[in-house]
Design a protein around this nucleic acid. Sequence first.
DNA 1: GGTGTTTAGTTTATACTTAAACCGATGTCT
DNA 2: AGACATCGGTTTAAGTATAAACTAAACACC
Lengths: 163, 163
Amino acid sequence: MANVALFETVLNSLPPDAHHRRAWLALLTCFSRIERILMQHIAQQYNSSLPRYDILTALALHEKSLTMGELATMLEVTKGNITGVVRRLSHDGLVSKVTLKEDRRIQSVSITAEGRMLWVAMHDDYDRIISRLLSGQSDDQVKSLTRALKQTLKAVDKIAAAL
Amino acid sequence: MANVALFETVLNSLPPDAHHRRAWLALLTCFSRIERILMQHIAQQYNSSLPRYDILTALALHEKSLTMGELATMLEVTKGNITGVVRRLSHDGLVSKVTLKEDRRIQSVSITAEGRMLWVAMHDDYDRIISRLLSGQSDDQVKSLTRALKQTLKAVDKIAAAL
DNA sequence: GGTGTTTAGTTTATACTTAAACCGATGTCT
DNA sequence: AGACATCGGTTTAAGTATAAACTAAACACC
């Protein structure tokens, strides 16, 4: 009897003028459903995870190595977080981490050949899943979703900056 | 030099026809930015967290108590997850957990008076923040975002069910 | 050249999350 | 009644995340 997603419950409890809340709820739900599918796929097929994939992506697309701080900035997570994930990736031989001679505070992280091979495979798969999940909609629908999200992102960043 | 969010980097690396990937990227970024703001606010103001808020919300909106399994279903997380968060909430006196007499396997969880008071305050604040963050857009823009997200959710669920 | 200050990253404590193994209680079936 | 399956939750192991405290290197500057 109570086995309905919270999404529905909250949605029904919302007054008709709660547009903002409804949008956020839809955003949250949509994101979580898709993320879970990606997560489970990456886990099963590659014995890996989204955070690992993200770091490999950053390194793969940048070519030249990145510092821990740059990774943290790009992924929008704390530096402490990066320390752990990079340690495990490095342990698995997917990235390499070198202390810079010129400034011994700085760690220079780059993707290894093995890491790049894994990344290419994962990236391909990741893309295929996204395409499949969104394939129920027309290109126009998808484009309009993207447009709305980018607008929202811009608005949010503006307000958030003024905090 | 590399201090740009991964969002931008990936976006620039995407071929013009990668509509799906672009939509997902926008969704991911938009979600994360908003979630982080909510998370930090709830942490600072209430020394609490979004998972805790979610459980309180489920209980507050349902009135009659819920089982651990129902909570897991509603929040779309594992039962093991619920065990931990509920334990801490219960320890803090915000929810109460009782073993059912009729079926000693079942835990009946409900929100306490104290829990409800906290929830009301948090809920209010949460709503205010969402409204504020999305206030840069017209009602029509917000509604169209919601519409696009609901469509997407429906499409995603359909495809995901056929896995 | 020593004395602070800033900077880059790590460590610590705590919480959240999953998947999988597990435990007890209940239901089923003969 | 006894054997076995199922069901509801908990536990475990590992990873991910934050904030805050910390370490060590580089800088600044008198």
